[in-house]
Structure formats: C-alpha cells, structure tokens
Amino acid sequence: MRIHIPTPLRIYTDKQDTVGVEASTVGEALDALTARHPELRKHLFSEEGKLRAFVNVYLNDEDIRYLPEGEATRVNGKDELSIIPSIAGGR
C-alpha cells in the first residue's frame, strides 16, 4: 500500500512524498514505514507509542483513531494512508 508523507516529514523519507510498504494492517504499515525511516518515529508517536495528538493518520477517507479496529484494521494494496499534521490556530 501507499503512504503519503506531508511536506515537513519528507526530510526523513529521503524527500519521497509517497512510500510503498507491504502490510496487512494499518499498524503493520506504520511499523514498516518507521522501520525503513526510523527518524520518523519520534515525529509520529509519543514515548508511550501513541500517535502524537496533532498527527492525523487517515486510511483512505477515515481517521484511524475512529476505525472500530483501529490499527488492527486490515488493508489491501489499493488502500492509501495519509499522514496529516493538524492545521489550527487563531488570535
């Protein structure tokens, strides 16, 4: 499956905007990504291993935090994961 990397994290993926991984679940896909690009891990996960609060990961159009099976959700080769840090603020 393909994982789309946002602009600020591409310095950790050799400037690649998309990384292809072999995985059967969302969790395996994220593990494969961070195994190949270890520097990414601390930018995506807290020390406790949870996704950092401002990091959103979508499986196609679904936030993985709200998938009934979470990171255990099964994926196939046509699925896409998108990593999207949040955008917010105000005066």
């Binding site: 946002p6 602009t7 600020p8 310095i11 401002f54 990091v55 840090p85 949040s86 955008i87 917010a88 603020g89 105000g90 005066r91």
Partner: peptide
C-alpha cells in the same frame, strides 16, 4: 488565516498549533 480586528502577528495559539515545519 485572518485575524479579525487584531494585528497580523502570530499568537500563542498559532504557535502551539503550528506543526508544519518549513
């Protein structure tokens, strides 16, 4: 984004919520 009736300067909220380095 815009700051209605407020200066065009980043706020503490803007900074805390900014995560797109570069």
């Amino acid at each position: 984004h815009s700051h209605p009736d407020h200066p065009a300067q980043w706020s503490e909220t803007d900074f805390a919520e900014a995560h797109w380095l570069g």
